[in-house]
């Protein structure tokens, strides 16, 4: 039995069929493509990781100026390559936040793509934050939310903010009008059955006291970063 190949059996059973139904690329060609792509397993969409340090009372422009684009990941490997090589949550100082945003979306409420969205805000104990962040990151890049949001809505970002006491994790969606009736927080509990969140609620971006309306959106437009794959600005 040793070394016996299932493929051989199949070929025997179906004589008229060549070795497989795979695309007609030669092994060498496949190898070449694989090498070109560096073996990366593609994500459904690119995701961009940002870092910021919050300043009390900052305007959108100040926030924007402080926002650092860490990297845009497009494959599972590039995600880990970044995750494995930046400080973990427990190494971040208070006031710092990481944001993972879909495509080249920025974690700025006033940006056009975000204006109609909001976040589910989850307050979690420090002992849970790293675990919550990692599991929710995987849920995002693995597209595990699809069945948990209402039709027409989408999960478009994830933020973690380190605070002096409890930390805040936020899940960004596209449309605040579709937040009600969404299963997003149920999904969080399914993903993190052992975690007790201290508080959770949904907040549309536009209801934030500091929300600046359309003004800053226009000022952003001119200097919008290249759509994606830009490592930094």
């Amino acid at each position: 039995m040793a070394g016996r190949e299932l493929g051989a059996d199949l070929a025997g059973a179906e004589n008229d069929r060549p070795n497989s139904a795979s695309p007609q690329l030669s092994r060498a060609a496949v190898q070449e493509i694989t090498e070109t792509e560096k073996g990366g397993v593609p994500l459904n969409t690119p995701w961009t990781l940002y870092l910021d340090k919050s300043i009390r009372g900052a305007t959108a422009a100040e926030f924007e100026a402080n926002l650092r684009n860490i990297y845009t990941v497009t494959t599972v490997q590039s995600f880990w390559s970044v995750y494995n090589n930046i400080p973990g949550i427990s190494d971040l100082s208070p006031k710092y936040s990481y944001h993972l945003m879909r495509n080249s979306r920025r974690p700025i409420w006033e940006d056009d793509c975000n204006r109609h969205g909001g976040t589910w805000r989850l307050k979690c104990l420090k002992k849970d934050t790293a675990h919550v962040w990692k599991e929710l990151l995987l849920a995002c890049i693995g597209e595990q939310w699809s069945d948990s949001v209402r039709e027409g809505d989408d999960i478009v970002g994830l933020s973690v903010s380190i605070k002096d006491r409890d930390d805040i994790v936020q899940i960004w969606n596209n449309r605040s009008d579709l937040a009600e009736g969404s299963q997003a927080t149920s999904k969080v509990k399914e993903l993190l059955p052992t975690v007790n969140f201290q508080a959770e609620f949904y907040k549309p971006h536009q209801t934030h006291h500091a929300y600046e309306g359309h003004r800053s959106v226009e000022s952003h437009q001119g200097q919008q970063a290249p759509r994606q794959f830009s490592p930094a600005n």
Partner: peptide
Amino acid sequence: IYERHELLQLRNSPLTRTPP
């Protein structure tokens, strides 16, 4: 769509040891 364990399997693949 990727399940958690599928993503975790790639966590230590050679490309992920070093930053981009």
